[in-house]
Write a protein that binds this DNA or RNA. Structure first.
Lengths: 117, 117
DNA sequence: CGTTTCTACAACCATCGGGTTGCAGATTAC
DNA sequence: GTAATCTGCAACCCGATGGTTGTAGAAACG
């Protein structure tokens, strides 16, 4: 069963903004289905650790990952439901597209001379 | 049949960045299945026309809309395939998630004492 | 023709984004 | 206790973004 909560525009902004960076998408890929510590992630990229921390922070605020402390290290975990939500949002556009196209076809079939404004 | 072209990271950046703004998402919604001129779009928002033009430009560079001149006015049209592409990209994450989870389950079933590094 | 409308582009400004370095707190290892 | 590791945060730099105003070209209307 699909969760029916409608996220705010600001939340949607955050989700897509978080996805609009190759490093963040790569981090997301790495932690899907297998948690990784922040420092482990940090070693994977040619940038400073604070930079990676910031990326994780952006993903976390978007709800795409969550952090869980395990001793002195912090584990990053993907949140698949949030990813699914983003996909559903895009699905709405496609649904809207089909609806509009269908409506247009129906209109043309009913009365080819009329123009809907 | 699904088009199998793999977009560059920069293209994916552009696509998600274009989607990370409420005004742009609204523009996209408006032009799905029904073209609209730039000035018509401009009248719909509480901002200057150049601002709306810029938003359309961002959507256009991301491939989510295209512009077509009709006399003196320019019509903006949504590109549903590009939206579908974005959705498929997110679908890859979910697929990866299922794959990883399945692999983990299989590993645990085969040898519960071993820990994969 | 002149006027209006639709569009485009340049310049400017404030804010944000992604990167850096440096410092400090907690936890683990020795 | 001391040292090493993992993390977090603040300050800073610079390029990109999102908005503005102003100017100008091209097409439609009178």
């Amino acid at each position: 069963m699909v969760v029916e909560t409608v996220p705010s525009q600001a939340e949607v902004d955050q989700i897509f903004h978080a996805l609009a960076d190759a490093t963040r998408r790569d981090i997301l890929e790495r932690v899907i289905g297998r948690e990784q510590s922040v420092s482990t992630l940090g070693r994977a990229y040619a940038m400073s650790l604070p930079a990676v921390q910031k990326h994780v922070g952006v993903l976390e605020r978007a709800g795409l990952v969550s952090k869980h402390r395990a001793g002195r290290e912090q584990h990053v975990r993907a949140e698949p439901e949030r990813i699914a939500l983003a996909r559903e949002l895009l699905g709405r556009y496609e649904e809207l597209w089909r609806t509009r196209i269908a409506a247009m076809d129906r209109l043309l079939a009913e009365d080819p001379t009329e123009q809907k404004e």
